[in-house]
Simulated assay, not measured.
Amino acid sequence: MTHHDELRLLPWSGSDEKPCYLSTDNNDSHLSRLADAIESVELEVATELTHYAAEVLADQEADPTELRLLATGLAHSLSKTLRVAHSRGRRVREGGHPFAEQGGQAPRPPAEASG
């Protein structure tokens, strides 16, 4: 098992929205692979939402309700993405390589996200 400071932050919360952690020496365990898959989905959702946001914000006649829903979705997605970044950042500092599922490359934001 891993030491307390080496616990993996999982991409979901427990009861009362408390963080969940995984303690394992096997990065290929069922729970590790599930967490990797969920992280990948969350990053893909963030990418798609970023594309959608660019479309909505380009519409000069965008409905205020649609803008509010977009802001809510972006805030939720950012929260999930920050959790993934925090988890992966910890694993990089600990000598792991959390981007194996992307062929060793960190995910890149879409080009239009940078302006």
Results as ranks from 00 to 15, higher is better:
residue 1 M to V: 06
residue 3 H to N: 03
residue 5 D to Y: 08
residue 6 E to D: 11
residue 9 L to C: 01
residue 9 L to M: 01
residue 10 L to T: 01
residue 15 S to W: 05
residue 18 K to P: 00
residue 20 C to K: 14
residue 21 Y to E: 00
residue 22 L to K: 05
residue 22 L to H: 05
residue 23 S to W: 04
residue 23 S to A: 15
residue 24 T to I: 01
residue 24 T to Y: 00
residue 24 T to K: 00
residue 24 T to Q: 00
residue 26 N to Q: 07
residue 28 D to H: 08
residue 30 H to E: 14
residue 31 L to C: 02
residue 36 D to Y: 01
residue 41 V to G: 06
residue 42 E to I: 11
residue 49 L to Y: 07
residue 52 Y to M: 10
residue 55 E to H: 12
residue 57 L to S: 04
residue 57 L to G: 00
residue 58 A to Y: 02
residue 59 D to C: 04
residue 60 Q to V: 09
residue 61 E to D: 14
residue 63 D to G: 04
residue 63 D to Y: 02
residue 65 T to W: 15
residue 68 R to L: 15
residue 72 T to K: 15
residue 72 T to S: 15
residue 73 G to Y: 06
residue 79 S to Q: 13
residue 80 K to G: 11
residue 80 K to V: 13
residue 80 K to W: 10
residue 82 L to Q: 14
residue 85 A to N: 06
residue 87 S to K: 08
residue 88 R to L: 03
residue 89 G to D: 08
residue 89 G to S: 08
residue 89 G to T: 04
residue 89 G to H: 05
residue 95 G to C: 01
residue 98 P to T: 06
residue 100 A to R: 13
residue 102 Q to G: 12
residue 104 G to Q: 07
residue 107 P to F: 11
residue 108 R to Q: 15
residue 109 P to Q: 07
residue 111 A to W: 10
residue 114 S to K: 07
residue 115 G to Y: 08
